[in-house]
């Protein structure tokens, strides 16, 4: 499998109070291959989002190396909130990355409407963001990420603010779209079950500064077959990941 992006022994320091500096992340290693979804799970503030920004090329590591086969235009980012521009309708929000890349307005809108149709929102193309429910707004955000057909999709707790039924449906839709594109995805969450459900690999991180505490592969096909949550594989992996996460947190507080 070809690596789309990798973090090699990266460390990120931020300026601390007074003249000191504090380590937010690392040393941390991560490889993202085409066609796989890697879940990063860890406590709040462990540097998960920092790792995503490194992968996106929005931040540089203090030490270590970021390898990115996917260029900037081939990387997409989905945030915890839908982050839609309130002055644009849904289709214009989705068309934005294309227009910024120089695609003509009409062509960009046509592709945006196609992307909206892929997330089941074709009829909402002309809706203002304020008219959309939380789940719909997140689908628009997902359509905006996928409209450029990225090789690398980065998701920063995208479903955290949604209720359980909506987040489950969105997780399935997201996995189907990722499989269709064949891109590499990195999914940040602090929900263990969600991490196991969407990840072909799950990486458990330690509290700040985030390092790898545990890593495991989830050997079921993506998108997940119906009833996957009821299988022993899912339940056992979720139990193990949960235990390892608790262990990592205890280790940090001990």
């Amino acid at each position: 499998m070809a690596a789309v992006a990798a973090l090699n022994a990266v460390e990120v320091d931020y300026p601390g109070p007074k003249s000191g500096r504090w380590r937010a992340l690392g040393p941390f290693d991560l490889v993202l291959n085409a066609g796989e979804t890697v879940s990063l799970v860890g406590p709040s503030g462990c540097g998960k989002s920092t790792a995503l920004r490194l992968l996106a090329g929005l931040e540089a590591p203090t030490r270590g190396e970021v390898v990115r086969a996917a260029g900037r235009g081939e990387t997409a980012l989905v945030f915890q909130s839908p982050t839609l521009a309130p002055w644009l309708d849904a289709a214009a929000n989705v068309a934005l990355p294309l227009e910024l890349a120089g695609v003509g307005k009409a062509a960009a809108r046509r592709r945006a409407i196609e992307a909206l149709a892929r997330v089941g929102l074709a009829e909402a193309a002309s809706s203002a963001p304020r008219a959309l429910s939380g789940g719909m707004a997140m689908r628009v955000s997902l359509a905006r990420a996928l409209v450029t057909e990225p090789r690398l999709l980065l998701l920063d707790e995208p479903f955290a603010a949604l209720d359980e039924t909506v987040r489950r449906r969105l997780a399935d839709d997201m996995l189907a779209l990722v499989a269709e594109l064949g891109c590499a995805a990195c999914f940040v969450t602090h929900n263990v079950e969600e991490a196991v459900y969407v990840g072909s690999r799950v990486v458990v991180m330690t509290p700040s500064p985030g390092r790898t505490a545990y890593e495991t592969a989830v050997t079921a096909p993506l998108p997940r077959p119906a009833g996957f949550r009821a299988t022993p594989l899912f339940r056992d992996t979720a139990e193990t990941v949960s235990a390892r996460l608790a262990q990592a947190m205890e280790g940090a507080s001990a």
């Binding site: 920004r53 996106a56 090329g57 929005l58 900037r72 235009g73 990387t75 997409a76 980012l77 945030f79 909130s81 982050t83 521009a85 002055w87 934005l96 990355p97 227009e99 910024l100 890349a101 450029t148």
Partner: peptide, 28 residues
């Protein structure tokens, strides 16, 4: 919004694009 700024940076928007397509409408 900071995340919208990040998106503009991610998609390689020029300073001009960021000004007229993000900052100006947000300021209205």
């Amino acid at each position: 919004d900071r995340d919208l700024h990040r998106l503009f940076a991610l998609y390689g928007a020029s300073r001009r694009q960021t000004l007229f397509r993000l900052r100006v409408p947000a300021s209205a």
